[in-house]
């Protein structure tokens, strides 16, 4: 049995969990983790769908996901450095109006 559907639906759940966390949590590291969970879910959908090719997997989504992983880590690295600067300037690891929640 081809497990693609199960993995794809698992990816959908990851997207939902990540989106929820990114909206609701105020602490910057939590937001960044949540965003990465979300993109992990998107990659999972992508790769799961590539597994539907009979015999081999479709390599084009694999290449696109590798690109996506690199882009995501770059954006996250910038976001993390910015977060530390924001904390230095404002004294809290959250954006104005948000709470740091639990550390």
């Amino acid at each position: 049995m081809n497990p693609f559907l199960g993995y794809a639906l698992s990816g959908v759940l990851l997207i939902g969990i990540g989106l929820y966390g990114a909206i609701v949590y105020g602490h910057l590291l939590r937001k960044i983790i949540a965003l990465n969970v979300m993109s992990g879910g998107i990659f999972l959908v992508f790769i799961a769908l590539a597994r539907r090719a009979p015999g081999v997997a479709d390599p084009v989504p694999h290449a696109m996901v590798i690109t996506g992983i690199v882009v995501a880590v770059c954006a996250s690295a910038v976001a993390l450095v910015l977060s530390v600067r924001v904390a230095v300037e404002t004294g809290q690891a959250a954006l104005p109006g948000d709470h740091e929640d639990r550390a």
């Binding site: 959908v12 539907r52 090719a53 989504p61």
Partner: peptide
């Protein structure tokens, strides 16, 4: 919405392979 989309996708697709 995403679940609805994913389950209606064809179960076999060669893509660009």
């Amino acid at each position: 919405g995403l679940t609805a989309a994913v389950v209606t996708l064809p179960h076999e697709a060669a893509g660009l392979a």
